[in-house]
Design a protein around this nucleic acid. Structure first.
Lengths: 343, 343
DNA sequence: TTTAGCACTCTGCTATCAACAGTGCTAATC
DNA sequence: GATTAGCACTGTTGATAGCAGAGTGCTAAA
C-alpha cells in the first residue's frame, strides 16, 4: 500500500470513529488538505475497498471500515506512535490502597468506566490456579469455621463451613499447619481433593475435619465454577451510542455480559497469549459480539497473574484513546498491588 | 364500583398484561362471554376512564391501564385470593446451604431470574446496622491482619489491614477480646470510630493497633458506602420485552440499575415499612423508573434483617405470578438461612 | 338500561416523490 | 501514466398522501 493510501485509510477510519457516518471522498479531501481532487480520492477508496479495508453501506454510499480495516488501523496505531500517552489517573485510584485484589479491580473498573462511554470489564483472580501460601482456620462459633486461604500474591480468600463435632481453636491451628505443610505452593481448590483424602488416613484423629472439609471444598468448587468471576461497569453509558439503536445487537451484547462464560474464557486465554490484547468484531468468533471490540490488559503482581481489566465497546471504538488508557491503568494498578504486598 | 365494572377492569388489565396491546370493547365481550353488547362495555370503559383506572393511547384507541389501574389490580389480587400459589423451587435452591448470606442471596437472584423475564434484584445485608457478636483478628503475614466480624445473624464479614509494627497472634487475640467486649451488640462500622478512639487511651500499649484500625475502618466505611450492596440478574431477558423498544426508557432503567443508589434506598426503606411491597410507576417518584414496577420481599432470620429480594419489570408485569413467587422464594430462603445458623 | 348504527378519529402501512450525497465511468488534461 | 472535470446513476432519507382497519362516542330506538 502506498503512503497516500495509508493516509486516506487512516483518516477515513478515524473520521468514521468520530462521526459514525460513512465518509465520502469530498469530506476526505477537505479534512486532509489534499492537493488532489475528490475523484482521485475516489479511485483510492475503490482500491482500498478491493483490498478489503473499507466497504460501502449501499451502492454509492460513503465508506465505513471493515473488521480488517479496524485491525489495520489498530496495528498501525500500535506500530507508529499513534497512541496518545495518557496521564496517570491517580486522583481517583488513590483510595484503592490496602484492599483485596478483587475489590481493588472492581473499583478500578468503576473509575475506568467513568473515563469513557464504553463498558469496563474486570476479570478477578482465578482462585483455582493460585499458589497457596498459608491456611488459617478460625473457630467463629460453636461449630462454624472460617477458612482463610492466603496465596503467594498476598491476596486472601475465605469461606465458611460447619463442623460435625466440636473442636478447639488449638486443634484448628494444628489442622491448619498440617494442611499448609502439605499444600504450600499448590493451587488449593485443584489439589485439596487429593491431599485431603490422603490426610484422612494419615491423621486419623482429625479424620472427621478433613472429610467434612473435603466435601465442602468440592461443593464450593462446583458452585464457584458456575459463578461469576467477571465484573462489569458502564453498560448504561455504552448503550446510548448510536450502534445500540439496533435492539437485536443490544440484546446480544447484554446477554453475553450477563452470561459471561464466553467473555471470561476469552479474556483468560488472551491474558496468557502474546497478542496485542485487541479483539475486533469477527475475531471474537461469536455472532453476538461481532459488532463489538474488546481491549484487554492483564494485571500481574510479582510475576503472578492477578487478573485483567478490559474495555468492551462498539467496533467503532476510540482505539487511540482506549488502548493506551487500559495499559496505563493496568500499569498503575499493578504498582498499587505490588506496593501493598511489599513484593 | 359495580361488580360488572370490576370484572371488566380486571379483564382489561390482565389482557393488556398478556398482550401489550390496548384492549377494546369488542375483545372484552368475547373474552368475558358477556351477554351484553360491545356498546355497553364501551360505556363502562368510559366510566372506568373517568375514574382514572384506564386511559387511551390516542383518541378512540383501545384502553391501557393507568398507574392507578395497576394499583387497583394489585390490591384486588391481594385482597381476593387471585394470587396463584407457587410450588416451592427446591431443586435449584438446594445448593445454597452453608454460604455467607450475601452469596446465598446472589444465587437466589440468579435462580429467580431464570423463572421469569424480569430483572431479579437482591439487597444484601447492610453491614452498618448489624449487631456485632464477636471479632476475630488473624495474623496473615508479617504485618497483614485479617479482621473477621461475626454478627448476631451468624453471618461473617472480613477485611484486611496492614499493621505499622509487628504483633504476635497472641497480642491480636487480646485485642480482639478487648474490642469484642466493648462492642458486642453494637453495629461495628457505625460505632467503631468512637469506641476505638476510646480504647487508644484505655490501652496505651495497644494504642498503635487501635489507631491504625480506626483509620482503616473510616476509610473502608466511605469506600463501602459508595460501593454496591445491590445485585442484579436477568437484565438481558427483560430488555427484550416490547416496552423496552423505547431506547430512552431502556437507558433510564439500566442507568438506575447501575448507579443503584436510588433503588438501594428505596428497597431498604420498604423493608421496614408495612406496605405490600409493590411499587408501581409513578409511585417510585423517579422519572427514570416511571414505566417500571417493583415487587419486594424482605428476608429475615431470627428477627434480624438479612436482606431483601425483589423483581423489577415493566409496569405491565405478571403480578399474579411474580408477587406470590417472590414471597414463596423469600420464605424458602429464610428457612435455609435460619437452618444453617441453627437459630 | 341496553343496543344497533353510523360518523369520526387516529394508527400503521404503503406508495410516491424530490432532494441529495456520493459513486463510477469516460474523456480530456497535465 | 496519473489526475481531473463532468455527468449519469444509484440508493437513502424524509416528507406527503392515501387507504384499510380498529375502536370510539353519540344518537335514537328498543
Amino acid at each position: 500500500m502506498e503512503k497516500r493510501q495509508k493516509v486516506i485509510l487512516k483518516e477515513a477510519i478515524s473520521n468514521y470513529i468520530q462521526s459514525a457516518e460513512p465518509v465520502g471522498s469530498k469530506l476526505l479531501v477537505e479534512k486532509l488538505n489534499f492537493s488532489v481532487s475528490s475523484a482521485t480520492v475516489r479511485n483510492e477508496l475503490k482500491l482500498l475497498e478491493t483490498l478489503g479495508f473499507l466497504k460501502q453501506v449501499y451502492t454509492s454510499s460513503g465508506r465505513i471500515p471493515t473488521d480488517e480495516g479496524y485491525r489495520w488501523y489498530v496495528d498501525f496505531l500500535e506500530g507508529s506512535n499513534g497512541l496518545a500517552s495518557v496521564a496517570p489517573v491517580n486522583a481517583q485510584l488513590e483510595m484503592i490502597a490496602v484492599q483485596k485484589v478483587k475489590n481493588t479491580l472492581n473499583h478500578v473498573a468503576k473509575v475506568m468506566s467513568s473515563l469513557m462511554d464504553y463498558t469496563a470489564i474486570v476479570l478477578t483472580p482465578d482462585i483455582y490456579k493460585m499458589a497457596l501460601k498459608v491456611v488459617h482456620m478460625v473457630l467463629l462459633d460453636l461449630n462454624k469455621v472460617l477458612v482463610v486461604l492466603l496465596n503467594k500474591l498476598g491476596d486472601n480468600q475465605e469461606f465458611v463451613f460447619n463442623l460435625r463435632q466440636r473442636m478447639s481453636q488449638d486443634d484448628l491451628n494444628k489442622v491448619s499447619q498440617i494442611i499448609t505443610a502439605k499444600m504450600e505452593g499448590l493451587p488449593f481448590f485443584e489439589s485439596s481433593d487429593f491431599v485431603l483424602r490422603h490426610l484422612v488416613k494419615e491423621f486419623p484423629n482429625y479424620a472427621s475435619v478433613f472429610e467434612v472439609l473435603s466435601k465442602e471444598v468440592e461443593r464450593l468448587s462446583s458452585f464457584h465454577k458456575t459463578s461469576e468471576s467477571i465484573n462489569v461497569h458502564g453498560v448504561s453509558k455504552m448503550i446510548q451510542l448510536p450502534e445500540f439503536k439496533n435492539v437485536e445487537m443490544t440484546k446480544n451484547v447484554l446477554t453475553e455480559l450477563e452470561e459471561n462464560r464466553f467473555l471470561t474464557e476469552l479474556i483468560s486465554s488472551h491474558i496468557f497469549g502474546d497478542d496485542d490484547g485487541v479483539v475486533i468484531g469477527k475475531e471474537f468468533n461469536n455472532e453476538k459480539l461481532e459488532d463489538c471490540s474488546l481491549v484487554i490488559s492483564p494485571v500481574k503482581s510479582g510475576g503472578v497473574q492477578a487478573g485483567a481489566i478490559g474495555v468492551l465497546g462498539p467496533k467503532r471504538m476510540k482505539y487511540s484513546y482506549v488502548i493506551p488508557l487500559v495499559k496505563q491503568i493496568s500499569d498503575q494498578v499493578q504498582h498499587y498491588i505490588s506496593d501493598q504486598d511489599g513484593i
